[in-house]
């Protein structure tokens, strides 16, 4: 009986993981990203603004921007699985405070 206890615990853990993992909806929602081209030439080009590769993850807290009135980042975004915002989901644009 004791021999099979380890296997029972494995089954229990697999069941627990199946119930507690939020698959696709849990993709780091509520993430904030700074815009890498903020204050740089070409910062307002729509191709640059809409390119997720131009954004860097900084956490889940609100962004604090200074400088010119341009996009400095996005908040409440969902991660695309590669450390960049998924622009097909909802997000909030952040400009200078």
């Amino acid at each position: 009986m004791k021999k099979y206890l380890g296997i029972f615990v494995v089954m229990l853990a697999i069941t627990a993981s199946a119930f507690t993992v939020n698959h696709k909806d849990a993709k780091l929602a509520g993430s904030s990203y700074t815009y890498n081209l903020y204050g740089q030439p070409g910062q307002n080009n729509s191709s640059n603004l809409n390119n997720p590769a131009n954004y860097t993850f900084v956490g889940t807290s609100s962004l604090s921007c200074s400088g010119s009135i341009n996009r400095c980042g996005v908040e409440d975004a969902t991660d695309d699985g590669f450390g960049h915002p998924d622009f097909t989901k909802s997000y909030t644009i952040r400009v200078r405070n």
Partner: peptide
């Protein structure tokens, strides 16, 4: 066993 199965499976699923 529980900890590593749980975290291992979770990391693979997600």
């Amino acid at each position: 066993i529980f900890l590593f199965t749980y975290t291992g499976i979770t990391k693979l699923i997600d």
